[in-house]
Design a protein around this nucleic acid. Structure first.
Lengths: 127, 127
DNA sequence: GTGAGTGCAAATTTTTTGCACTGCG
DNA sequence: CGCAGTGCAAAAAATTTGCACTCAC
């Protein structure tokens, strides 16, 4: 069991008190703005430790890993390619079909990642 | 319309004549082994150009972009976390449900990425 | 000769690592 | 003391970019 140090507590609180998806760099920057200067390596290691403990979850985008609160039901993500907004959605049928597809190929499925790209409602309205 | 130079032709032929998923670095290395030394930047630019022309397709993993032949029906990927093998699968129902989920959120869906992680058959047998 | 393409090396970006140092039990 | 955690700076790894050079039309 990793230690929940002051820095990690700060990181955890910040993630828990927001509904956003944070990547290490942005989170470190935002914390610094609020007076919590934490070394970037500590943020990376802290996030990994918190995820290992199950205190936060993550999703991987091509260029960065984003962390979010853990107390949510499983869901997948929709990313707006225009403004970067991340929305969540879930569909049990899709989940089931994925398992079936894996079984069909003899895969012992351990996880999956489904990301839908597109333009969100507000970006669409802006043209 | 980009030019199909000697280098790009070489890259294209290599991808078309194999059923594998290539990332730029591995492809450049493999081509070099076969006597086709192409600068890594040229490989990156060539792959991007070929994809723009629709001559090859790609999938994005967290740490690298993999290119494959374009003359295939749409499919998603299953990646073995043990040996790195990439298998393909497709499921129309999943595709449809994704569109429905996007529409439900008011997203103008432009693409998606579904990757299933797990252990492939042969890795499972090895224990 | 003009513009796209090439190759090399330097720069970028995200994340990891080495290492000396700090803090708590 | 013993050790996990921290911070900084250097290292990795994939990809991009600046720039001089080459080549086909």
């Amino acid at each position: 069991m990793a230690k929940l140090t002051t820095q990690r507590q700060t990181i955890l609180d910040h993630i828990n008190s927001s509904n956003q998806h944070w990547n290490a760099v942005d989170l470190a920057h935002d914390l610094a703005l609020r007076g919590h200067k934490i070394g970037i390596a500590t943020v990376f290691r802290g996030l990994a430790a918190l995820e290992t403990e199950g205190l936060i979850s993550s999703m991987q985008l091509k260029d960065k890993k984003c962390y979010e609160r853990a107390n949510k039901a499983h869901h997948d993500h929709m990313v707006c390619t225009s403004c970067g907004t991340i929305e969540e959605f879930s569909n049990d049928t899709i989940e089931t079909l994925q398992e079936a597809a894996a079984a069909d190929k003899g895969f012992d499925m351990t996880g999956h990642q489904l990301v839908i790209f597109g333009r969100c409602t507000s970006c669409n309205q802006k043209g």
